[in-house]
Design a protein around this nucleic acid. Structure first.
Lengths: 244, 244
DNA sequence: CGGACAGTTCGGCGGCGGCCGAAGTGTGAC
DNA sequence: GTCACACTTCGGCCGCCGCCGAACTGTCCG
């Protein structure tokens, strides 16, 4: 019993944590939370390290199962291994201390405000807008939190009427309704398969747009109108949503 | 944009992960998942390091907010900061690779089997028994997974009849029904406030016992009978539950 | 074929951090 | 008062690992 680590069977928590315990690798993972596949060079530039350094980090992350890679020609595309990985990272991030950084410019300030207002969280909506949508769905009786988050019968009807394609693949083990702690709002927003379906619908319907390479979500005019009629969200999303 | 880390505002994922990225600290946290308060010396012996080494690690964990400490006389008691911290660690552990260790003795084999059969997971039940209870509650219609885990009306009635004290403190933000990935079974078991209430009731009613300093849960004779009549679990828990 | 470019491998440097033992501080028991 | 003991602080050792630049491999394009 006394020899060091001898009876340390069980999950190798330290090995997993070590993958995220480096600033550069953490920056990679946070960037990849946008759900896209990035190339090694993109990530290297993003984190401010040399390509050779990025290579090593990516090897470790892929070997550790956090990332999957896809070689295409001379490019190495890399993405998060799956929704569960993304949710693990988000959940970890929501427990992590916030690192304040001085605002360096006007565009920087704008970028941050936009990110706090509405952004993607892997494959669903986050930020003030994500929380607002979740709240509105609750208030209108589409979500019930009494015994954990759940979709109500009215919610199901509402989804059908709205035309949200919420069919889960039969074999999928992904939870349907799930919450995800929003790290700017410090409150739950809707995640899981339902959150993803909702967000996908928002894109398909032309309510939301996302610029490639960014997590910032913009609401179109049609989107503002839809959110107003469907969920009573204020038209003046820019101001109203930001203040909350 | 290109200066390293300059725009790295946001959650400091790496700092949090670094706390868990060391074998000794990870062993501390996993041990503390039993929900008890441990002394520094106990943890040091458990992990096989010198007391002076443990001191340093505990300082970091407390400073990082993962642990809280309580000085009493010449002892320093330390415990997980809360249920959310415990759940974060459990969720991380369930994603971590399993580290196989050779079985070293007969008692070791017994200990592992007992741990896989039934153990505590911070403040609720885990292991094969935890999963079996969750399954039985689902099969009898007490839990509904169709739209995320939720307690049904029948489930609520059953809890009342059984006498489980499931009153949540009014101000609590802790989720009521929650799942927790079991790392031996690789399936969900019941967690959250409900899982804790259920486990507490099992202890109070004399159905379950836990030896101090261990996570192993034993089912009493009365417990086996109760689980049989209440949930149709087989009497022969030792054999039946183990095989699953 | 040659040049541009993405990614990789390798060697070497530097620093962080985990480990210990020895010595020191405070608490509790007798 | 004296001893035992829990914990702490400090100094020093050692190894790991993150970083880079330079050289190399392979792909795409003209």
């Amino acid at each position: 019993m006394s020899s060091p680590y001898a009876y340390e069977d069980g999950p190798d928590l330290a090995a997993l944590a070590a993958l995220l315990a480096d600033r550069t690798r953490a920056a990679f993972c946070l960037a990849l939370l946008d759900g896209r596949a990035w190339t090694a060079a993109e990530l290297a530039r993003h984190a401010g390290v040399a390509p050779s350094t990025a290579t090593g980090h990516l090897h470790r992350l892929v070997a550790g199962g956090l990332l999957t890679e896809e070689r295409r020609g001379r490019h190495r595309y890399v993405r998060l291994a799956g929704a569960d990985t993304a949710e693990m990272i988000e959940s970890l991030a929501s427990h992590a201390p916030y690192r304040p950084t001085p605002v360096r410019s006007l565009t920087d300030a704008h970028r941050r405000r936009a990110l706090a207002r509405a952004r993607t969280c892997y494959d669903h909506l986050a930020g003030a807008l994500g929380v607002a949508v979740t709240d509105a769905m609750t208030q209108r009786g589409y979500l019930d939190w009494h015994h954990g988050p759940a979709l109500t019968a009215e919610g199901l009807r509402w989804l059908r009427e709205t035309g949200v394609a919420d069919d889960r693949p039969a074999g999928s083990r992904r939870p349907h309704v799930r919450t995800c702690l929003d790290w700017t709002e410090r409150r739950d927003h809707l995640a899981g398969a339902l959150g993803a379906a909702l967000f996908r619908h928002g894109l398909d319907a032309g309510w939301l747009t996302v610029r490639t390479g960014s997590r910032i979500v913009r609401v179109t005019e049609a989107g503002a109108e839809a959110l107003h009629t469907l969920l009573d969200l204020p038209d003046t999303l820019d101001t109203a949503v930001t203040s909350a």
